[in-house]
Design a protein around this nucleic acid. Structure first.
Lengths: 89, 89
DNA sequence: GAGTATCATATCTTATATGATATAATTATA
DNA sequence: TATAATTATATCATATAAGATATGATACTC
């Protein structure tokens, strides 16, 4: 199934649609970071060491229900040899 | 003077270059938010009311030396009828 | 230049992000 | 299937974000 289709079905329930809309950014950010880590073939532990934190904290970031600061995201991004681009659209 | 030129001069001092590089994201984000607010002809007070916070907190965001959370930035963006796009590049 | 609007700064309180450790759950490998 | 590797979850301590109020500094307007 195409995502557009799945999204249409999900949106038909107002509560689901609302939850999706409100958490769009969070999940997009999580996906970006997980993808970047996997692309570099790093474990959470390895990334944690590069960042200077613990594996559990990387897991917390990647698992959601979390509101990271811009600086923390920036640190993780740099450990992944990336830079954050943030735009208002 | 073109920015590229100014940047070249600034970069010639390693300490200045380092400070610039480290704070690039912060200043870019600040500029985005200030521009979006001005474009909508809102005062900090008006934006604060829309966000549900105080004028001083908007000023704190726009004045730097601050490490906002993703959620706070998202709230402000939405009050400005914008959405945050965050990418790793 | 007095009065007003806007923004910056200082400071307090409270909520929560982050560092940290331990351990459970899950997945990969032999 | 047992062992190891990896990830998720729980929890505590500490640092700090964010709400809030007050007031100082700057810029407009009359």
């Amino acid at each position: 199934m195409k995502w557009a289709n799945a999204r249409k079905i999900l949106n038909s329930d107002p509560e689901v649609a609302k939850a999706l809309e409100e958490n769009e950014l969070e999940y997009q950010v999580i996906r970006e970071f997980i993808k970047a880590r996997i692309d570099k073939n790093l474990t959470q532990k390895q990334l944690a060491d590069l960042v200077g934190t613990q594996q559990s904290n990387i897991s917390r970031l990647e698992s959601g229900n979390y509101n990271p600061s811009l600086e923390f995201l920036d640190k993780v991004a740099r450990a992944l040899d990336k830079r954050i681009h943030l735009n208002l659209v």
